[in-house]
Amino acid sequence: MINVYVFRKQNAITAFELSGHAESGPYGHDLVCAAVSAVSFGAVNAVSELCQIDLDIDQGEEGGYLRVALPSHLEQSTKEKAMLLLEGMVVSLETIERDYGEFIKIHYK
């Protein structure tokens, strides 16, 4: 099971954390894991590149763990761009959860 934790402060995403493995298929053919990885890493790369933000990233060496936090002080326009990208990630993860809820669970804190 992949657990996704989305951390918010004043309705803005401050961080997110993914942990676990979907185990929805054999290694290398796990579509849920591939989808979650693509969505989350795509969002991280987009925020980093398009918003020019140095994110705080903690990643497990053998997969199964990713934690990303935004810096606490961002210009308002940069924060708004980052929020839009991260909210898009959450919508995509919610879609995966809706269709494959036995393999992924999203928690909001």
Rank of each mutant, 00 (worst) to 15 (best):
Y65L: 06
G88A: 04
S77E: 12
V47F: 10
E61L: 07
E94D: 07
A43F: 06
A46Y: 01
K81L: 14
L66D: 03
M89Y: 00
G101E: 09
E49T: 14
G101C: 10
E87H: 03
T78A: 06
E62P: 02
I57Y: 04
E80C: 09
D99Y: 12
E61I: 11
L74G: 13
I53C: 03
V68Y: 04
E102I: 14
Y100L: 01
A46E: 01
S72N: 14
V47S: 01
M83R: 08
K81S: 15
A69G: 10
D54Y: 02
G63M: 09
D56G: 10
L70Q: 06
L50K: 10
G88Y: 01
E102W: 02
G88C: 09
L86F: 05
K81G: 05
R98M: 14
V68E: 02
A46N: 05
L66Q: 02
I96S: 13
D58F: 10
R67W: 00
A69Y: 05
C51R: 04
G60D: 07
N45K: 07
S48T: 15
Q52H: 12
E49L: 11
L85F: 11
Y65G: 08
L50C: 07
E61Y: 01
S92A: 11
G60W: 01
S72V: 10
L70I: 09
A69Q: 13
D58K: 15
A43M: 10
G63R: 05
S72T: 14
P71C: 01
R98T: 14
E61A: 15
A46D: 02
V44F: 08
R98N: 10
G64K: 07
D56L: 15
M83S: 15
L85Y: 08
D58G: 07
I57G: 02
M89V: 04
D54A: 10
Q52F: 00
I53V: 08
T95H: 10
G88F: 04
G63P: 06
S77D: 12
E80H: 13
E97L: 12
I57V: 06
G64L: 05
E94R: 04
Q59I: 12
D99R: 08
A69L: 05
Q76S: 15
L66G: 06
